[in-house]
Design a binder for these strands. Structure first.
Lengths: 219, 219
DNA sequence: AAAGAAGTGGAAAGTCTGCTCCGGTTGACT
DNA sequence: AGTCAACCGGAGCAGACTTTCCACTTCTTT
């Protein structure tokens, strides 16, 4: 059908100056809108706030996933970097709790980020890599704190992930920091000294996690 | 305009046999549908499953709240009864945890119930009374366990309510009981012995609770 | 500066969802 | 049994949201 050269040139051709400008504008605006309304905010909201037509948004990002990818590829690495920073702290418990606080702070401030971290709308290599990196650093922190005897030995990193997503729903307009109270309670239950009896179920299997996270984010 | 007698007779007139039958059918079906999809499930879903027309549902319950009221008035009392049963147990901690388990079980099984308990769609005296009764019995259980020195003294009943709603989102098709693991973790953080440092914030103020609950139920 | 390719805006078409309305049916009452 | 008000079903209307389309503008190239 179409010669291969056409396909390549079509994909690689640089955007026209005004189109490139608009692309940036869309990304900036979408970052704000997604943070407020989550990943399925309307395109017209983005267009309106950016002061451009809806058509322009659809032309640049015909698939919503593309927009999401473009926005969150770097964000996940940014978050993982916090984890690597937390490893610097010699006290495993202190490092872990510091990391958890940073994570919830981010998720509370950005609903879109929360949804991306909770596995919704994935299927991108780079996003998957970012999340994988995050998982690894998370597991490292957990295992270290357990080795130091401060974190209870019967939890896995995914348990903390689940609690994190649950916690990040605990905010209000008037009391935006409320989650900190419940994080403190949860942390007191995670200390090695808090163990009373074996946990009644195993941590969720890997393949169950995506559906779980989707549910926790409100369908 | 209309004579007063007309208004009265209109309100009091008993339903025709077929209409009464359908009303029951709607209630039965709505109980199932609300349990599955939450309080804003579509009326057509209810109609379809009941094998009747949408119009019939709308005619009988023009306002959704009326349907919700009719369904949940008794349910809340039923739940409060669990609390009163829990008081029988002399060990305050055992009674409280037993009660919490019953609550989450119910909320996980019935999304509509969860939303009603979480203060959404209220403004009915009887529903408000039911919730009030529930609150009181809850506070009683909390205070008793604190007096017995098993529950940490720095939490209030509303804290348990918040954690409960958060926990009841933790379910999956394949692992419906998963919430039990996280309830166990939360409980370990609620024991008197788990206190490490003062909680960083106060429990949410009463007037902040409705918005909080609404957010936690997914908008 | 002229030509044409690329990009734009927003009106209009398409979709989805909640609700109403009315021709036809059923049950209650005499 | 006949009359009529109450009730039924579901086609279809209204409004919100999503997506496409194209006449017009802007940029790039020669």
């Amino acid at each position: 059908m179409t010669p291969a050269s056409d396909v390549i040139s079509e994909a690689d051709r640089p955007l026209r100056a005004d189109a490139a400008r608009n692309r940036e504008l869309i990304l900036e605006t979408a970052a704000v809108v997604f943070a407020e309304h989550g990943l399925d905010a309307g395109y017209d909201e983005i267009a309106r706030r950016a002061g451009i037509g809806v058509g322009t948004v659809y032309r640049r990002f015909p698939e919503r996933v593309e927009l999401v990818r473009a926005l969150f590829r770097s964000r996940l690495d940014e978050i993982a970097a916090f984890g690597e920073q937390a490893v610097q702290e010699p006290d495993g418990w202190a490092g872990l709790t510091w990391f958890l606080e940073r994570l919830v702070e981010r998720q509370v401030a950005d609903r879109g980020l929360k949804e991306v971290m909770a596995q919704t709308l994935v299927d991108d290599q780079q996003v998957a890599d970012g999340r994988k990196r995050l998982e690894l650093v998370f597991e490292g922190l957990v295992e270290r704190a357990q080795a130091q005897g401060t974190l209870r030995p019967d939890v896995r990193a995914i348990d903390l992930g689940v609690q994190l997503v649950a916690l990040s729903a605990i905010t209000t307009e008037e009391e935006p920091e409320l989650w900190r109270r419940y994080l403190a309670l949860a942390l007191d239950g995670l200390r090695a000294g808090a163990v009373t009896s074996p946990l009644p179920l195993d941590a969720p299997a890997d393949q169950a996690v995506p559906e779980l996270m989707r549910r926790m984010c409100g369908r």
